[in-house]
Design a protein around this nucleic acid. Sequence first.
DNA 1: CCTAGCCATGCTGAT
DNA 2: CATGGCTAGG
Length: 822
Amino acid sequence: MDRIAAPDADRSPPPEPGLPHEGGGEPQAQAARHAAGPLLIFAGAGSGKTRVIVYRIANLIVTHRVPPYRILAVTFTNKAATEMKRRLEGLIGPDIVKDLWVGTFHAVCARLLRRHHEAAGLEKNFVIYDDDDQRAVMNRVLKELNLDERRYPPRQVLSRIHAEKQEGRGPGEFERNGYFDDAIARCFEAYERHLKAANAVDFDDLLLSVLRIAEDPTSLAGEDLRARFRHVLVDEFQDVNQVQYRLVRAFCKAHDNLCVVGDDDQSIYRWRGADVRIVRGFRRDFPHATVVKLEQNYRSVGHVVRGALGVIRHASDREPKELWTSNADGPPIDVVAADSEHDEAAWVVECVKELIAQGVSPNEIAVFYRIHAQSRVLEEVLREARIPYQIIGGTRFFERAEVKNLLSYLRVVANPRSDVDLNRIINVPARKIGQSTVDKLIQAADLLGVSLFEAIDPIIEGRVPPSAMPGAKLEPLATAAKRSLLGFRDLMQGLMTEARSASPSALAEEVLARSGYARMLEQDESVESEARLQNLRELVQSIVDYEQEAIAAGEDATLEGYLERVSLVSDVDALVDMPKVAMMTIHAAKGLEFHAVFLTGMEEDLFPFRSQDPNRKGDIEEERRLAYVAITRARERLWITHAARRAIFGQTRYCLPSRFLADLPPASVRPMATPTSMMAQRRVDVGGGGYAASGGRFGGSGERAWEGRGSWEGRRPAAQPEERLAWSRFARDGEAARAPAARAVDRVERAPGERYVEREAVDAGGEGGEGVALRRGMRVFHERFGPGVVESVDPGADPIATVKFSGWGKKRIKAAFLRAGS
DNA sequence: CCTAGCCATGCTGAT
DNA sequence: CATGGCTAGG
């Protein structure tokens, strides 16, 4: 009976495709056996695309005798790369696998760029600047150009620049429209100049630099890049940007042995330059391409597949395809109405507990959310319940201040020209080098045209080297500042000397000891300092891990090697196979699958997300595809939760269920409400005549395929009318809400114990209808637009309210046409 | 001239 | 609500 304890027992595995001894006429096998020329695989969610790539690589090596080092397989995360290697090792053995080029675009390009750094005008020890570093550079640039950072927010300027770079354009090709763009163009130019001076690259540069080399017909390095690979495979092809596409085309120029696997329905990275048109235009670019469609889903139960299809069916502009499955229906999707984010979290934890009690391993359970800010409440409740969990992303380990500080020390040791890193640590721990001293140092560096580190000696000695501009004059430093600066220089030089002989981990220990960083934290006996020390120990351990891995792979463990790896890992990659419940954003969930999935915060404005900032326009279509990705991660059990109110970004919002919920086929859904939510509901029923009698969209029909089936019914009976209400009354057609109007109930911030107070207020309110005052945050119902939330009210004899409706947006409505909604 | 504490202001998603 | 810029104190 227990399908939970044995998750995939009733699932037949897909046919084994593609190994030489295998026959098979399935699309999977066809794709795996395809040997030469362009190949496009449209792979629906759960159709086994990783399997196809793995078998195809094995086939190329075993049958077609392609040397492994001539094969490049690009994945989207390091985790996917690791998984791919693991599976290949089982097929063809570790010795062959270690010669393959498997990795993310960024990791592969970093490796190639180390090899061809000269062609890109970089030193071999270049460092990779992350978001924070980039912002620091941009702040300096804005200051240098005398631009007001209120008018030119560093984030926005950077995002413009990244957009350009992702299209393959440099400052020279920047198209200006108006004088605002002139400023951006100057920032762009200065930003590039600063990176270059610091011997640093950003993420875009990793790809762009390699691309420029690869597309250069005259350079030897370019020739090497174009001839290096004989087969190129790209996973998640729907999410490549122009630069990445040009890159793979350059790699394949000689032979067109390009195999791409993608699903336009899962394109969720448009905001970072991904261009779905690339996958859609592939057949135009490669008219002789073989096209294979994988449309059978082997992963999920029927209800989950149909739920996902319901959502994606409404997407405009998709490649025609129809995902299907022969898997059993399985349990329906539970759509759960909660009262608040706390109520939602409590529900999730209860369900998780139950799953674990059923024997489901915690690492087969995942909790998804749209944005990181949602994770905190969930985390608190899980911790309280002593359920092991792991948060993927968020305030990531490598973004913690202490971790970044230690890394900055190491990066300066590796590359003294890295100004951002030097600036970060020059006074950490505090060593009496304050802002004014640093300012003078920056000024000196600008004047002399050298890095901050190189400017230390000249400024201390007050001498101007002959290379400097004529007439250059340095701001004199106070004696105390000179001494501090000298101490810092000696510290760093000592560490650089140490680095020549010590291992990276030993060097890290030295940094902590000599810089006084460890002592600073030890002296402060606060809990935070304790945690920071622990994080630093963890970081040192990660260096040790790296060294051991490098030795095992027969490579040298270098500081540069470690720093590069650290710059490119994401937390998804760190997802360990320990029995922990995984919590992550949906973006991080792409490519993963779990037995049970909780998709939380399914509310308008949160998912689909809409920014407060009216200048930033969301993309509903991309949000829809994101919902599709989320749903298709679940193999068997899927809960989708939404809350009626949610405190987020420092304010309480009143929320409508997401429009995507209305797209789920009713027959695959089991609507529910948390106990607290039901209480809230009953209050309204008492006050206004109630929805209970109305039944609702799912009430009384024969649509409930789940009725009386499966062990879940017994444990969590859901067929009580009340429990369906909170969900059903927001069904898209608004049918459920034809019930007699409930009167105004303002649910603002009321503790559970206060609910009778509220009810009294309702009872005292007199007749329904006119006498009801509309208030901000109140839920209302309109005959045509359905349920909505009041945003503001223009008072008067005939008040007009601005109401936000699910799926309709904001409308101005006369209060007389509105009924209280709940 | 440095440092520590205060107040204010932006916030999706990630290699 | 967290980082960061700013001010007052040392």
